[in-house]
């Protein structure tokens, strides 16, 4: 026999496969975008990279699973009610985490050099990671598939599919992006935020409680991380104390790609990142998808040094 040969069996319809890869990319992109929105929001207001954001997201995954188990302990069997209670509790408690992190690690550093809060944030992210590892153990946690609704387009043999949860992820990303954009642009809180961003001293003089505004921004950012944590945990069903790091870096990349500080930019950046990773993994090679994603980032930044939707820097003399 002349060496091993690949048997000729019909391959799946390439159009369906390509469509499925696009859907995969869209979902992954929405996931990145969802985390990036919280990132970019905090950055937009106080101009600081919140390295602990990924860790907040990780904590929300734990909180969500713990509350689900707790609800089960109390004998609540109706899934929608249980989910609703759990979701609300997770968002509130994750918000408390966001608030506390800001109080402990960032507020004392307000007004100092630009790098001090960055180092403090890196320290905080180490603290949160190891705190969860100590409290909950290092093992991988799993959430069994609770709900497996799925939409399939095509025939029984060949189809493009998206699960309901994945659909919810995409919808929630778009809705929260829109809601936050509205919040920043058209509400009183939003005006306070923008004033704080432009000139903190002046905002203070005008009667805006900037400390409270910044705290609120952190709580909102953390709540966004909680929404992301809940949905993503629901989708993948597995997490550990280390997921915040990778998620944080990817979200950071997405935020910068879209122009850091811009909410639509964060979503756009996330989707571009997700699509490029998915398509590269699907069409070329899984091993190098991350290299491709980062190379794309560098390439975009060379031609647009402030990201796709970021405001161009004006050099003041």
């Amino acid at each position: 026999m002349a060496g091993p040969t690949v048997p000729k069996v019909s391959r799946g319809n390439p159009m369906y496969i390509l469509a499925q890869q696009l859907v995969n990319g869209l979902i992954l992109g929405s996931i990145y975008g969802l985390i990036a929105i919280g990132y970019t929001m905090v950055y937009g207001i106080i101009g600081m990279i919140n390295f602990a954001h990924g860790e907040i997201y990780m904590i929300s995954a734990y909180l969500f699973t713990i509350f689900l188990a707790l609800v089960a302990v109390f004998g609540l069997t109706s899934l929608p009610v249980a989910l609703l209670i759990t979701l609300v509790a997770t968002i509130i408690l994750t918000g408390v985490y966001g608030f506390s992190v800001e109080r402990i690690a960032y507020r004392p550093l307000r007004g100092s050099t630009r790098l001090a809060p960055l180092i403090s944030a890196i320290g905080m992210s180490l603290v949160l990671q190891n705190y969860v590892q100590l409290a909950q153990g290092a093992r991988d946690q799993a959430l069994p598939p609770l709900y497996q609704g799925v939409l399939r387009f095509g025939s029984a043999a060949e189809f493009v599919q998206i699960t309901h949860i994945q659909l919810i992820i995409i919808v929630v990303t778009v809705v929260s992006m829109a809601a936050l954009t509205y919040l920043i642009n058209y509400t009183e809180l939003g005006r306070a935020c923008r004033a704080t961003q432009q000139d903190r001293t002046m905002a203070n003089l005008l009667g805006i409680n900037t400390d409270r505004t910044i705290s609120l921004v952190f709580v909102i950012g953390a709540s966004m991380a909680a929404v992301a944590g809940v949905l993503i945990t629901f989708n993948f069903g597995s997490f550990n104390y280390f997921i915040g790091f990778v998620a944080g870096i990817k979200a950071f990349t997405a935020a910068v790609l879209g122009g850091i500080g811009s909410l639509p930019g964060a979503m756009l950046g996330g989707i571009i990142l997700g699509l490029s990773e998915s398509l590269f993994a699907g069409l070329v090679n899984t091993d190098y998808k991350d290299v491709f994603a980062f190379a794309l980032l560098v390439a975009v930044l060379i031609f647009r040094p402030t990201g796709l939707l970021g405001k161009p820097e004006v050099e003041k003399i």
């Binding site: 402990i104 690690a105 550093l109 001090a116 809060p117 890196i122 320290g123 603290v127 990671q129 190891n130």
Partner: peptide
């Protein structure tokens, strides 16, 4: 062993607050 990275992170935060520069 288990506490060392936790303490490390805490030290980073507190040194920064103590001496921001």
């Amino acid at each position: 062993e288990q506490f060392r990275m936790l303490v490390f992170g805490l030290a980073m935060v507190f040194v920064m607050i103590w001496r921001p520069t």
